[in-house]
Design a protein around this nucleic acid. Structure first.
Lengths: 223, 223
DNA sequence: ACCTGAACACCGTTCAAGT
DNA sequence: ACCTGAACACCGTTCAAGT
């Protein structure tokens, strides 16, 4: 009797949606989006495609689940009592870091619906805006601005990550971009020339946060 | 002699990268991203895949060219003498409308590098920020915020467009989303409940512009 | 209920052959 | 120089058959 298994208990190597999603995330992180195929997945899980399809609707479902998993981890509660502006920065930065670590999430965001993750972002941002004293009529718009800005940066980060070869040095890559920029006609592209130097030195994270602060400063003028 | 053709002259039905990109855009606009295959393209252009590959590097190249084409049209010059703030609004709205009309561009943005189109956006936004009197040290960050925000909205619009069936009514779709939202625990998601009503009524374009204004207001506090 | 794996339909891409 | 179209390697997905 003591050794009787519960109904929900499974063999340790039993398949499950969680194990499949976990394996998918590993493949995506280590070998990139193109490497995630059902053949790679069947090999890693030592099974056939049919077994995977028993747990997962299709590839889109799998990708959505993987994206949801990563985003869910970001939305860990900000410590109680954190100042609203700081709480917003923390959440935004969490999103930034998560997509920096898993660039495929950034690409996925523009492609598939977010649904729940999106909703959590709105709830998190919106609650803090309320605490900040932003007028109710402006809260939706302000939350939307913060979320969309963060997603825009995420998408571009993902695009850049895909552009550079996995091994490439970041500075070397940016230098190459700048080389192209300065070759342009300065009369037609004065601003691009001006920011060319800053491009190599700038910190993506800092600039992202500066953008969040810019939106928050704009929100401050509404009060 | 009078009938002698110039070297660069071609038969009217001759293939060219422009004609291929044009056909690709038509397929993307009318039938969506999934419909753009080399078979669909060869059929429409009455040729073989090899002919297309003579003019185009690969599918990524084709998609990038199509995206570039659409974005280039957006960056039509804003009338000389337009007030800077208004010029920024016009450019941002042009981007919004273009991606509203060609949702696949929004998805493409997060995926492939923009390169030239991106650069044009920065140049356009940056020049106006300079005219606005934004301190030089803040111009890069402000331009980046405006561009990334616009791209974020674009990406989400594209995702939503892909989510709804081509024929679906917008209001009906949003009502469905709201139905799901209000089913959530109000104690855990008070903000989502609060904005649920606004979601159905709100105008995407207006809200996008409001976000641009929010960033511009933030920029105004820097002066 | 869950897994196996052969098979199907389709895709991007190549290439020898033509003009 | 440019085009043709058969062929290749690979992919997501299905399904009859097993346990």
């Amino acid at each position: 009797m003591a050794t009787r298994r519960q109904r929900t208990e499974r063999r340790a190597d039993a398949l499950s949606k969680e194990r499949i999603v976990e394996a998918a995330i590993e493949i995506l992180d280590t070998d990139g989006e193109r490497a995630l195929t059902f053949r790679a997945l069947t090999q890693r899980l030592a099974t056939g495609p049919g077994a995977i399809y028993w747990h997962v609707e299709n590839k889109g479902d799998l990708l959505a689940a993987a994206t949801g998993d990563v985003i869910a981890r970001v939305m860990t509660d900000v410590p109680e009592g954190t100042e609203p502006r700081e709480a917003i920065r923390t959440m935004a930065l969490g999103l930034f870091d998560a997509i920096d670590a898993h660039p495929w999430v950034g690409a996925q965001i523009a492609g598939e619906p977010w649904q729940f993750a999106m909703l959590q972002l709105f709830e998190g941002m919106g609650g803090q805006l309320k605490a900040l004293g932003v007028p109710e009529s402006a809260q939706f718009g302000a939350a939307s601005a913060l979320v969309n800005y963060s997603l825009g940066v995420a998408g571009q980060n993902a695009a850049n990550a895909r552009l550079v070869e996995p091994g490439t040095d970041r500075t070397a890559f940016l230098s190459g971009v700048v080389d192209q920029w300065v070759r342009l006609d300065p009369a037609k592209y004065p601003f691009v020339h001006q920011i060319a130097k800053q491009l190599v030195e700038h910190d993506d994270r800092d600039q992202f946060l500066a953008g969040v602060d810019l939106i928050l400063a704009g929100v401050g003028t509404l009060g």
